[in-house]
């Protein structure tokens, strides 16, 4: 079992052995929001084609190598030594575009009782989003 950590959460997936992170198109879409299309790996209106001549490193047998696409997209990734846990992040450029759009990035986090709250639950109010820490 492999775990993918993404902006969408933590997802157990069945990765195929080999270099990279090979997932079925369905699992890749569930874990990252990026879906495999004839044009490439797509999210919303954005499609990233596999580089010409190197397609086999990116897509094979209905599976998609997310590690290769993440490198190709210049998006950050990190994995455990065993390769059983992968963290796939948003690119710095993507984060910057998001912040400069001034649309507050949504998030969902638990309170002490385990009840989940989303920023977007409070649309219609002014929000002071304030951080602190025990340390």
């Amino acid at each position: 079992m492999t775990t993918v950590l993404s902006d969408l959460g933590a997802f157990p997936v069945t990765a195929s052995p080999g270099e990279g992170l090979w997932l079925s198109a369905a699992e890749a879409a569930m874990a990252t929001g990026w879906s495999l299309q004839p044009e490439g790996l797509c999210r919303g209106a954005v499609c990233v084609p596999a580089p010409s001549g190197r397609e086999a490193e990116f897509v094979a047998g209905g599976k998609v190598n997310l590690a290769a696409f993440w490198r190709h997209m210049d998006a950050p990734a990190a994995h455990s030594k065993e390769g059983d846990i992968w963290a796939l992040g948003e690119s710095a450029g993507g984060r910057a575009d998001s912040l400069r759009s001034l649309e507050a990035p949504d998030f969902t986090l638990p309170d002490l009782a385990g009840v989940e709250h989303s920023l977007s639950d409070h649309r219609g109010k002014k929000v002071l989003l304030a951080t602190w820490a025990s340390w």
């Binding site: 992040g89 984060r95 998001s98 912040l99 001034l102 649309e103 507050a104 990035p105 998030f107 986090l109 920023l119 977007s120 649309r123 219609g124 109010k125 002014k126 929000v127 002071l128 989003l129 304030a130 951080t131 602190w132 820490a133």
Partner: peptide
């Protein structure tokens, strides 16, 4: 939240209006 809003310390805060804009 530190990742999404590029925060580096506490306390840091963001003001967000009724339309969800920063």
């Amino acid at each position: 939240v530190s990742e999404l809003y590029n925060m580096v310390n506490v306390p840091q805060a963001v003001w967000i209006d009724e339309e969800g804009r920063i």
